[in-house]
Design a protein around this nucleic acid. Sequence first.
DNA 1: CCTTAATATGAAAATAAATTGCAACTTATA
DNA 2: TATAAGTTGCAATTTATTTTCATATTAAGG
Lengths: 139, 139
Amino acid sequence: MLKTKLEEFKEKIKSSGLKITPQRVAVYKEIAQSSDHPCAEELYERLKDKIEGISLTTVYRTLASLEKAGLVKRVPTLKDKIRYDAKVEPHSHFVCVNCGKIVDLDYVPPTPEEVKELGDSLTCTLMCYGICKECQVDE
Amino acid sequence: MLKTKLEEFKEKIKSSGLKITPQRVAVYKEIAQSSDHPCAEELYERLKDKIEGISLTTVYRTLASLEKAGLVKRVPTLKDKIRYDAKVEPHSHFVCVNCGKIVDLDYVPPTPEEVKELGDSLTCTLMCYGICKECQVDE
DNA sequence: CCTTAATATGAAAATAAATTGCAACTTATA
DNA sequence: TATAAGTTGCAATTTATTTTCATATTAAGG
């Protein structure tokens, strides 16, 4: 039987000893539908008009909870805001060094096993830095 | 004729239209000798007793200048502080998701040419996340 | 070597992101 | 449905980084 993404979400939340709240569901749904690696503030902006009971603080705390539950992952950035990704499978990222935009790449980086000699690694990501199309036009 | 790293540094600084100051020399020497990807504050802590005229503000500004000159590179992090690396050649990083430590890896990631279809990329880094030896002991 | 214009500096204040304390409120198990 | 554990929003706080501004330093030309 095929589980929906939301059912899987609820299961993982529960098995992490967390409770299912409207705020957590909303944050997870929003991030799972996004492909632009939003940060806490962006998620809050997108949700505050749709969801009655939501605050920026809660978005921050929700992301921390989801991260612990393995439902979202931080994406390392060059700028200062922490960005999140609901795609937790191995993949790569293209980062615009001008605007900070992070785009998913299909390139599958070496597996932890392949990079074993380095230590006990959990995940590997190939980060590519460059100037995205839009930023090239601006100059 | 083989240039020393410091001579090369001075040349690059000058060709970037920047001036050679004791503070810049000190920051660059310190970061070039480090292998632990220090952040601005760590560099300041290491220098403040050795160099008379140095402030945290200047370290921040110096890193920005050196980055522009191509003498140092930011390393993307999962935590919030910006870390720097004086090793600007392509290489990879192992990141401890517990303590945030970033260790250089010899693994050479795909070149920009090999990842060309993704856009105009400048550099590629393979980021491996895991738990470093020291943090494993602690648990 | 002295002048000077451009640039760099330090201290303090300002910003911005993320976190925390606390009292009130939900959730989910008994 | 009671209730204990966990969650929430608000406001205040912390932490990293940047900016402002007055003073000082650098390097190129005379």
